[in-house]
Design a protein around this nucleic acid. Structure first.
Lengths: 338, 338
DNA sequence: ACACGGATGGAAACCGGTGTCAAATCCCGA
DNA sequence: TCGGGATTTGACACCGGTTTCCATCCGTGT
């Protein structure tokens, strides 16, 4: 009841005996202001518990302090990690995070997003894979006056706004690790066609095999769509062959879980009979049996940097845009046994 | 370049030869308006591709069209499900969803949220468990002028704003199912003390056992904190006893995965040697081996309703606030074998 | 003691909408 | 043809900030 009405800049001005403008100067930390005046006003602000109305500010400044997270659920763990990372950065600022899950196959995708950005007058947007690979979408956002950060796993054309892990190298390292464990017949499950991340991981596999001096057996190659079921099928195909692999690298954890599933079905023991490595280090990786060796994306760090690039482009412009992924060695990959 | 400047209500007014106010009436679908005038203005709006500035609106109306989702990550799947559910409802409205992950153990939790709501002038907030069990927090939000919806798993005091599943009944049903499969020694892993959901599930277990005419052996009771590791420990404890259970009900999926883990460690086969049932139907449930029989919360539906209650309280007031959970029968629970 | 330039602070307009209230217009019966 | 109530419409103030422009005020140099 005490706060029947929130204090406004006028209240502050009246109580401290100065004009609105002066209060505004205090709020905005204008340098040309008498120290005594500033302190006086600040005292009143503190006393009144005054918070500037962001709507009014947004209106006057013709810009909003909303940053949008647009995504088509790559996976829950990742989306949430990104949200937390962004919040780490903007928590104590006037920015807020508004989320917008979308369906990337919707025919009205671009229109919807256009309308969303325009309606909310977003300050900036962050795009998550696979949406971040859509150049047309990024251009649209930019045309609408937003700064854009795209989170991806490869170098994109527009380097200024990119925050990326380095999938290729990480996969290559993972394959090297398998080779080091003595595996020679290594299977690979690729991600869906058209995904940049899938392509990167493929290239990483090829590079890793090359570096280890191993040959790639086409019979040990399969392709999935990043979902559990596709991993299951791919696993069945690979393990059902005449000369099955002793290790399989899967382009993401969910498909790796599918492979594990397929192995169990065939009565294979993991990791004794089959080593498996996944990618993403989602929650599932640590919680299946055996715990999955996988590649960890530093999602939260990336999101923090992304948010900095969005909200403080001047100071974050020179921050590195590349984040190395690293291999989390758990129990699903062991030396080859015969 | 064409859109050097977004059209304003003034542009629309000028071009259609009416006053701002009339345009405003058109936008707000005021009923007292000549049909011809309305059409004329609508034509201009369409032609100009005019979208009202939400900041100006928010300022004039003294209310924003932002609804806040405040949570301390109960689990990623659930948070994302809620976000999607909310978006289902508000997608084509002027509302936007702003998210705010918090740390419920932070000493400044209430202050932070107070500041957040006040700063963003939220229209309404949605609280997820376990935050939704914090009455003080709910009161704070309400005092700040927000409508509040709490998503929970039990009847709370404030029924008007509650959207809940019915955990107790669901667990009871799950236990009945185990009894039907012939299990008599059924273990139970409770959630953390102080969580309403944990309490509900416990009561459900007790009720279920009672209905099935089974006795509860204190040696088959354990308590975890909803995380994987605690499930692992609880599983080890229960399975290491003199007279181990043939089935275990775990108060959530993550702990169930831990139990599975513990069983594997001891060389038990699941489900032949041990049946397991979880709760929540998170992604992990379907992706471990064997696929977990579990209880599904209709999260997305609940969130849709919650969003309706937030944004259209008048029309959603009479919508039911209870959603039945149901048992998803997968492979981890089978008839008892000896 | 006086003119002068930079530092400070205020009045008023503006951002793009909405509320109030009265004026203008319409319709109909007398 | 006119009065009077109902329907439409517009002028103007206002929401709570920022910006522009101008008036003071101060210390200095001479």
């Amino acid at each position: 009841m005490a706060k029947a009405q929130k204090p406004t800049i006028n209240d502050v001005a009246r109580l401290s005996g100065v004009s609105k403008k002066t209060v505004s100067r205090v709020i905005n930390k204008s340098p040309l202001l008498n120290q005594a005046t500033r302190e006086k006003v600040e005292a009143v602000i503190a006393q009144l518990d005054y918070v500037p109305n962001p709507q009014a500010r947004a209106l006057a400044l013709r810009r909003n302090f909303l940053i949008g997270l647009i995504h088509d659920n790559p996976n829950a763990q990742m989306v949430l990690g990104v949200q937390e990372g962004i919040l780490d950065t903007i928590r104590s600022t006037e920015f807020a995070l508004v989320v917008r899950p979308v369906d990337r196959h919707s025919p009205t995708l671009l229109d919807d997003i256009h309308h969303f950005i325009e309606q909310q007058r977003l300050y900036g947007v962050m795009l998550l894979p696979p949406l971040s690979e859509n150049d047309e979408l990024a251009r649209l956002c930019r045309d609408l006056g937003c700064t854009v950060v795209r989170m991806g796993s490869a170098k994109l054309d527009d380097e200024a706004h990119l925050v990326a892990s380095n999938d290729q190298e990480a996969v290559s390292e993972a394959v090297a690790w398998l080779a080091e464990l003595g595996h020679r017949r290594i299977g690979f499950i690729a991600g869906p066609d058209g995904f940049r991340s899938a392509r990167e991981r493929e290239l990483g596999f090829i590079a890793g095999m090359g570096r280890a001096g191993l040959t790639i057996d086409p019979a040990l190659l399969a392709r999935g769509d990043y979902r559990f079921e596709s991993g299951l099928e791919a696993g069945q195909a690979l393990l059902g062959g005449a000369n099955p692999p002793t290790a399989i690298f899967s382009s993401n954890d969910e498909m790796a879980a599918g492979v594990l599933h397929a192995a169990c079905e065939r009565g294979l023991r993991v990791p004794q009979d089959l080593s498996i490595i996944g990618f993403d280090d989602t929650a599932i990786a640590a919680h299946i049996w055996p715990p999955l060796t996988t590649v960890r994306w530093p999602i939260r760090d990336m999101a923090r940097t992304a948010a900095r690039k969005l909200t403080r482009p001047e100071s974050a412009a020179r921050e590195p845009a590349f984040f190395p992924s690293d291999l989390v060695r758990r129990a699903s990959a062991v030396p080859v046994q015969d």
